[in-house]
Design a protein around this nucleic acid. Structure first.
Length: 585
RNA sequence: CGAGGUGUGGCGCAGCUUGGCUAGCGCGUCUGCUUUGGGAGCAGAAGGCCGGAGGUUCAAAUCCUCUCACCUCGACCA
């Protein structure tokens, strides 16, 4: 491709709309332009990168027997009602009506549609297992799109779905995908960490998120040297075993007047006591019934742990009316004193609290000198607080490391959740009707691109892994005007093209400084510079984007050298097997 | 939804407090000349109903009201 004909104009200044580096660089390098909040044009340079990522994904999915298909972005309401997700997805689902007033949505994921395909097309156990996948544009009405393509409202995703007649078969496919995901990300130049995660509204049992560590990530993961890793929602840790607390002096419960002091922060200020001396009591509606969850005042309740610990399907914070009915007091003044123990759940840390302060279930009143056992009884002690830096690994006891991360992929064992709801069945070898067991495997394609840039850049621009660079190589005459330089450049460009190298040729009659800056910004991994000093001795410069110095190479050898370097670089990206660890489940 | 902020040629910004001549600057674009190893210089040119609607005023980019879009933090989130 001739640079003079490319639709790309690079920007010298950072765009006002962008905050994080990958977003800035994608716009400055001419890959991306915003159309609306969270909605983007992928200009040719950006689209080319996305296509390369897609190709890697296709190769790896096909290698584990995935079959590509394409499902509609627009789905009818009826399908989503079969699983209850038309309601469950709430405002995140983009909805629209046709001219007759019929309801549709723009798919954010395709479990319903694929299960519909399966129940119609797959009748026999002989067709199983099978895995189908697509690369599709997905839609989510995000409350707040962020960081360019990192969290958009329209984005490209690969989603795969597998169907099985046994758990063992699903386990095997899950392991295949686990391995394939590792390979895909490695080939894109990304080192990912698989962590245990909560399945959320998708449902199912085992699932892993593939995370890349980055300070701009929106998730927090807790990692241990021993290989154990989980995202924040699922980050369980070892509860410290302590001696039972000893009360230094006899004290008894006392009601105190605290008008308008409805938050922990206000309590700390008004009583001049630190947050860890309070109990935070929050009322939730769990599967329709109210419960009270208690953690120390300085801790955060982890809703996923609470939901799992209670063994309920739905969990939401109660509103003021519900709290009033349940406790007799208002929001901000709840506490366990006087509550039936069967509806009180507390974090184990509560056991060790002495002479603590909590709400009195009466507006504008708290209790002080409250002690577990004497003043109230806890029905169930389960770990329901968020992990924090310094907590210990539940497996080996070492200190967990908290890191920010970007979620690139998520794999789930769905089980029969969708096939049950949608009555998707097949006949087994005994002519019995069975319900499909399913798995589902997603990758954020456009997000990979952002994550790669985020982790591969310097002050001059992007440093692409060669596998997904928009072009593998750039040929650049210092002075396009110079017949000799142009002649040699054209010739090298032609030869590289013939050899199948994805090469760009900067044939613009611009000043060299301008072209160097542009090349660094766009981040061509390899650069051939044809200048007059070098020409005298039949040499051109060959420079790698991530190396400081260029090497002088004979003109007639440069093409072969480039071919070799590309081969070596790609092999490097493929040779990840020494780091790979098999799926733990 | 809560809090803060921004809308002025393609991009980045100034002007607004205290209303007043033809709305400026840098980058980019086009023409010409000179340049040519890290975002060149000179000369010239094109390109704006100042986000939109209403109001105040002799007069509004500037003041008032409403509205829309976008950004950041939070809440939320396969």
């Amino acid at each position: 491709m001739r640079v003079s004909k490319m639709l790309t104009h690079t920007l010298k200044e950072d765009p006002q709309e962008a905050e994080v580096m990958s977003h800035k660089l994608m716009i400055r390098a001419g890959m991306l332009r915003r159309v609306s909040s969270g909605i983007y044009n992928y200009l040719p340079l950006g689209w080319k990168v996305i296509r390369k990522v897609m190709d890697i994904i296709r190769e790896e999915m096909n290698a584990i027997e995935g079959q590509e298909l394409l499902m509609p972005a627009m789905n009818p309401r009826e399908l989503w009602e079969e699983t209850g997700r038309w309601e469950e997805m709430g405002d995140n689902l983009f909805r629209l009506k046709d001219r007759w007033g019929r309801d549709y949505c723009l798919g954010m994921t395709h479990e319903e549609v694929i299960t519909d395909i399966a129940r119609k097309e797959i009748q026999s156990y002989k067709d199983l297992p099978i895995m189908l996948y697509q690369i599709q544009t997905k839609f989510r009405d995000e409350p707040r799109p962020r960081a360019g393509v990192m969290r958009g409202r329209e984005f490209i995703m690969k989603d795969a779905y597998s169907f099985h007649d046994s758990d063992e078969s699903l386990d095997e496919k899950y392991r295949d995908n686990y391995r394939a995901y590792w390979r895909i990300f490695a080939r894109c130049g990304m080192e990912t960490v698989p962590v245990k995660a909560d399945p959320g509204p998708i449902g199912g049992t085992d699932n892993h998120e593939f995370m890349v560590l980055s300070p701009v990530g929106e998730d927090t993961v807790f990692l241990c040297e021993c290989g154990n890793g989980a995202n924040k929602e699922m980050a369980y840790f070892k509860d410290e075993e302590k001696d039972p607390p000893v009360r230094s002096k006899e004290s008894s419960r006392e009601k105190i007047h605290t008008p308008g002091v409805s938050t922990i922060e206000k309590l700390c200020k008004s009583l001049k006591i630190s947050a860890d001396r309070f109990m935070k009591a929050i009322v939730y509606i769990a599967d329709g019934k109210p419960i009270m969850a208690i953690v120390r005042g300085d801790r955060d309740i982890n809703q996923v742990k609470l939901r799992r610990g209670l063994g309920v399907k739905t969990l939401a914070m109660a509103n003021d009316d519900e709290i009033l009915k349940f406790t007799g007091g208002h929001l901000g003044f709840s506490g366990p004193v006087g509550m039936d123990p069967s509806v009180v759940v507390a974090d184990p840390e509560i056991k060790y609290m002495v002479d603590t302060i909590c709400g009195a279930n009466e507006k504008d009143y708290h209790f002080r000198n409250v002690n577990p056992g004497t003043d109230f009884t806890v029905g169930k002690y389960i770990q329901i607080r968020d992990a924090v830096e310094g907590d210990k690994c539940p497996e080996c006891g070492k200190v967990l490391d908290a890191k920010r991360s970007i979620e690139l992929g998520h794999i789930f064992k769905l089980g029969r959740k969708y096939s049950n709801d949608m009555k998707a069945t097949f006949l087994d070898d005994k002519s019995e009707r069975k319900t499909f067991i399913m798995g589902c495997y997603g990758i954020g394609v456009t997000r990979i691109v952002a994550a790669v840039i985020e982790t591969h850049n310097d002050k001059n621009g992007i440093i692409w892994p060669i596998s997904i660079a928009p072009y593998e190589c750039l040929v650049m005459p210092v002075m396009y005007n110079d017949d000799e330089q142009r002649g040699i450049s054209e010739e090298i460009y032609k030869k590289l093209k013939e050899k199948g190298i994805d090469v760009a040729y900067d044939d613009r009659d611009s000043r060299p400084g301008f072209k160097f800056k542009d090349a660094d910004l766009i981040g061509y991994p390899l650069r051939v510079i044809v200048g007059k000093k070098a020409i005298k001795d039949g040499l051109v410069e060959l420079k790698l984007r991530d190396e400081k110095e260029a090497q002088m190479v004979k003109i007639e050898e440069v093409v072969d050298m480039i071919i070799d370097i590309i081969k070596v670089e790609k092999t490097k990206l493929m040779s990840f097997s020494d780091r790979f660890e098999e799926c733990p489940c």
